[in-house]
Design a binder for these strands. Structure first.
Lengths: 201, 201
DNA sequence: GTCTATAACTCGATAGAC
DNA sequence: GTCTATCGAGTTATAGAC
């Protein structure tokens, strides 16, 4: 708990931490209050309900999870460079917030669809720009004929899945967090190599 | 609800369904009872508590999620064939139970470590056999020098991540379940091609 | 074994003092 | 704005009849 921050900021920080760890259903308002160094009543004073507080956090987290790399996806850059930049940047970002991917995936799975559409569909992810670029380079004969969705899905899978599987991976292999981070550091360059190698002529 | 099954079997089926959908924290004993066509008290008669019931289900689901493909991993088969068999078989399996990966990943993230070790560490996953085979083929100069863990992680990522990201994928792209399944059907052969291509000399 | 009724408890939310 | 105290809804778990 940081006395310098405003109460609202402390609540948001605490809520983010607890929701990320426990999910909406597992989180307790009492835990958030404790984490923020205040009492439950104040949570309701600043945010009307648990649901509103969660919505605020989820919006913030989901916004950071998806479109921060959006600028890269729509940048005017050759495809291979773009893939390299994307992996480097995305893995860097997730290394800072390793619990985010599994949290987002899980909540998307559990929350009612209407709630999610409200949050996600209003942001226009520039995925389409990336898919089009792949398609164009296929047509121009620059790269092999591939399904653009597969390329995007492959890139995302290789960057994100290790973070999602990390608890299991560490449990099964006994790997510690430092080793895991080192592994991901290497993968920043190896993932693009793998992807590019699969599509270059 | 199937009247032919024993009460215990009906409870297990119902619990599996509800826990998979809602997770431990989101699941309600009432929902499980309704799904099984009995009342709450009977759940406690057969399984002492919600926690015990969850433990039973989680053990069963996790056991099916990880080591069913174990036989393939330790089989006496050339590496490339093994990778092909693994992807084909694993994707087939998950297509039957598409909610399992995200459920397992999520609960591993939330449950206390002691509980998980009790469940997971007692089964010896034959991952080591696969890693050793990759290592041997590297030493023998049959394939490129690679980190075996990377190969395993890549294969797992490409097979599993799409299922974990499916709700988001469908939300963002508007893809329906049939299209998604068709995509995964194609990936059964494309994933091994990608992996093998990255390590063959 | 299965049910109804209810106890025991957890937790989000509110009232009201300061 | 912040606190203490408490309500009331919802949930797990148990008692006891059949």
């Amino acid at each position: 708990m940081n006395k310098d921050e405003s109460t609202e900021a402390r609540i948001l920080g605490a809520a983010r931490k607890v929701f990320l760890k426990r999910g909406m259903d597992g989180a307790r308002m009492q835990d958030i209050a404790d984490e923020a160094g205040i009492n439950k009543a104040l949570l309701h004073y600043y945010f009307r309900s648990k649901e509103k507080l969660f919505e605020t956090i989820f919006l913030e987290v989901a916004a950071g999870f998806l479109p921060k790399v959006g600028k890269i996806l729509e940048a005017q850059v050759p495809l291979f460079e773009k893939i390299e930049m994307f992996c480097e940047e995305y893995i860097n970002q997730i290394l800072q917030t390793p619990y985010v991917p599994i949290f987002v995936m899980n909540e998307i799975n559990r929350q009612p669809k209407a709630f999610l559409q409200k949050i996600l569909l209003q942001r226009n992810l520039p995925i389409a720009a990336f898919l089009k670029q792949v398609e164009d380079e296929v047509k121009a004969g620059i790269i092999k004929p591939v399904n653009p969705v597969d390329i995007f899905l492959n890139t995302l899978s290789l960057c994100l899945f290790p973070f999602i599987a990390r608890p299991m991976l560490q449990l099964v292999t006994g790997m510690d967090t430092a080793s895991f981070n080192a592994l991901m550091e290497k993968r920043k360059t190896e993932i693009p190599r793998l992807i590019i190698n699969s599509i270059k002529k």
